[in-house]
Write a protein that binds this DNA or RNA. Structure first.
Length: 648
RNA sequence: GCUUCCGUGGCUCAGUUGGUAGAGCAGCGCAUUCGUAAUGCGCAGGUCGUCGGUUCGAGUCCGACCGGGAGCUCCA
């Protein structure tokens, strides 16, 4: 007998060879029905796995992340089986579970129409109803290749050939007429899936490589209960309503124009005001922290970028002015970053170790010629303005300067209220990508070791990603997901031990020797356009009071009150509160409705009652009627909120 | 850049098998002067993204380009 330690440290004895499914069954019919996979001594296992030795076992259900992954992975196989039935000649690539469901990539003879998708979804429901048994079996690599060649599946053959070297048997899962190469785990039968929805069909490159074939990807999601699917779909709909690309336009924050061009949003008065508020806040805070403001040109001769390495590594991403081919013509380029400009400021003087650290900050407008399919609202644009900065320091100062930058960033994130929504990524180079990166392996090993040590000491909880570094150094990227679940970098901090030498930036140390300093590239709040986009989505347009482009709107009950309304508006403005009056001859209900839709934080209603008592009726966008206050009381309340940068 | 879907007045959309455009909101005018999410009436507004093709005739069919959405790739 073997001893299995279950939930709550309960130990039960089983015959050796008992499967995970058997154990689940012995614990209860309900658990067996809900079981998606098992976890034996911390390792995720298939329900079919026979237990040969004593271990700690937990049964994973849809409520566990790993159980959910197995559930969705099985769903992707059902999708593939449905495609096989509906589209003869379909070739299968890969079909994993993802955080929000699953997808499967296919090579199909014709593009998928929405009707095709509906037909495939119906077929999936049929397969589920048939409750097809799912079986696991293994083959040697040679047998596996032969089987997949027989099925006419070249992508699977390619995958098997790659695995073959490991000398392990290749596992397959078969459900009726469909057999797929797969490591598992999987549910026991197709009937375990209850509610299905196919969400979209799009393109995706084989192996994520743009030089390889474009496949068709179908995204879907499934749940054990129809109501859970409904809720999920409702959530997706709700999320779309927060989309900054929609809401930001509705609220009059920005617009785009065909004649102006792709990726070139026009910030309208309200959006421009929000960004101005953020920018003033950032510049003031940086000044307090010892940053030196610079203002450098938006373009430079190509020679500067040749020196920085951008001409070699980043030319496709730059807007180049002038014709390189023409003899003797000067060629310029709009700047894609601020680095070399601030370096030239550093180089304008001789520096002693006593001068360091030097912290340069600039509200910097950058231009990047992104490929046409990359642009998205305010998140990915061709011209943007970033709180850019470079810290020049000695090796001894690197850690404390880095810590200072992280402290500033955390302060910014806390202030705008997104501290809980971000994650940290340690972005490293890819040693095999010689095209992309400059510098030696020793240099990379050293700076990455330095950065890791600093991150660990700062207690930052980060993930690691290879091949995401800047071409000159590793990065700490601060990531945030947009409303569609897509992650973007909003802030980045980089350690650079390579460009100082390239630019011959030196300082004189205690011994009178010239040394190359470390450079920290950083932004404190990111680029304003992208940060604004994230704020719109985070707050569904209802920004914290201090950031609102219109903080109070006075609503005179009838035309008779217009003069006094303007008087109150002027009082508020004098107190630094952004106030307007709705002068239209409309009913107050109508004015309130509009102000609510425009997310104006406070509405001040003015009629006979208020005029007599020298007050206004205050309505908050969030709490509704707040009763009457004198203008002075309202100003005091609003100012307190604004000055503390309160997050509602 | 790639795959796919889409493009009708400022916005949201309708427009049947090709027969030369319609609604609501917004705007403007008039009336109304109103108490916490839409007052009524009227007026004006579109060479149907652009260019080319098929056709007696194109918003409707075809192509190219421009722009937008989703995904992929890319993102110093």
């Amino acid at each position: 007998m073997i001893q299995i330690k279950l939930k709550g440290d309960v130990i039960r004895e089983y015959e050796p060879g008992t499967t995970v499914a058997d154990v689940a069954k012995s614990l209860g019919a309900g658990l067996f029905k809900a079981a998606c996979a098992g976890k034996a001594d911390g390792k995720v296992v298939d329900l079919r796995t026979p237990l040969t030795e004593s271990c700690a076992l937990s049964i994973l259900t849809f409520d566990d992340e790993e159980g959910r992954k197995a559930y969705w992975h099985t769903s992707s196989h059902i999708l593939a089986q449905a495609v096989l039935r509906k589209i003869p000649g379909a070739k299968f690539a890969i079909g994993p579970a993802i955080d929000s469901g699953f997808y499967y990539d296919f090579d199909l003879p014709a593009p998928l129409s929405p009707e095709d998708l509906a037909g495939i979804e119906d077929e999936m429901k049929r397969i589920i109803k048939e409750d097809v048994l799912i079986e696991r079996f293994t083959l040697t690599p040679d047998e596996a290749v032969r089987l997949m060649e027989e099925y006419g599946q070249p992508y699977k053959v390619e995958l098997i050939r790659e695995h073959a070297g490991k000398g392990e048997p290749i596992s397959f899962y078969r459900q009726g007429d469909f057999t797929d190469l797969c490591a598992g785990p999987h549910l026991l039968s197709t009937g375990c899936i209850k509610a299905v929805k196919l969400l979209s069909a799009t393109g995706a490159y084989w192996r994520g490589d743009a030089s390889k074939a474009m496949l068709q990807r179908i995204y879907g999601v499934t749940f054990p209960k129809a109501s859970a699917l409904e809720e999920h779909l409702t959530r997706l709909e709700e999320a779309k309503k927060r989309d900054h690309n929609l809401l930001g336009r509705q609220l009059g924050f920005f617009t785009t124009n065909e004649l102006v061009g792709q990726g070139l949003p026009l910030l309208m008065p309200k959006g421009a005001r929000v960004i101005q508020t953020l920018q003033r806040f950032v510049e003031d805070e940086e000044e307090k922290r010892g940053y030196l403001l610079t203002k450098t040109p938006l373009l430079a001769k190509s020679d500067l970028y040749k020196l920085s390495g951008h001409w070699g590594h980043y030319k496709d991403g730059m807007f180049v002015l002038g014709d390189e081919e023409k003899e003797g013509e000067e060629v310029f380029a709009l700047r894609p970053m601020t680095c070399p400009f601030q370096y030239m400021i550093y180089k304008a003087d001789m520096h002693s170790y006593r001068d360091l650290p030097l912290r340069y900050g600039e509200t910097s407008t950058l231009f990047r010629n992104e490929a046409s399919g990359e642009m998205h609202g305010l998140i990915r644009v061709r011209q943007f303005t970033i709180s850019e900065g470079h810290l020049i320091c000695t090796p001894e100062q690197l850690e404390s300067e880095f810590a200072g930058v992280v402290d500033l960033i955390k302060f910014m994130m806390r202030t705008i209220g997104i501290e809980e929504d971000i994650s940290y990524r340690f972005s490293k180079w890819d040693p095999n990508d010689t095209e992309k990166y400059i510098g030696t392996k020793e240099m990379w090993d050293e700076t990455q070791r330095d950065m890791r040590r600093i991150l660990d000491r700062l207690g930052i909880d980060y993930t690691e990603e290879e091949g995401e570094a800047a071409f000159y150094g590793p990065k700490l990227d601060i990531q945030m997901k947009n409303v569609h679940g897509k992650e973007d970098t909003i802030i980045t901090v980089q350690i650079d031990h390579s460009l100082a030498e390239r630019f011959d930036m030196t300082y004189v140390d205690q011994n009178g020797e010239k040394k190359y300093p470390y450079i920290i590239h950083r932004t404190s709040i990111g680029c304003y356009e992208r940060t604004l986009a994230m704020l719109i989505e985070k707050y569904a347009g209802a920004l914290p009071l201090w950031l609102c482009p219109e903080q109070a709107r006075i609503l005179p009950l009838s035309d008779r009150f217009q003069d006094s309304a303007q008087g109150i508006r002027d009082k508020l403005r004098a107190a630094g509160i952004k106030a307007e009056v709705d002068m239209r001859s409309e009913k107050v209900g109508y004015k309130i409705r509009e102000a609510q839709l425009e997310k104006v934080p406070y509405m001040l209603i003015l009629g006979d009652k208020e005029l007599e008592s020298g007050t206004v009726s205050v309505r908050s966008r969030k709490e509704g009627d707040m009763g009457t206050k004198t203008p002075e009381e309202f100003i005091a309340m609003a100012r307190a909120q604004i000055d503390s940068k309160a997050i509602d």
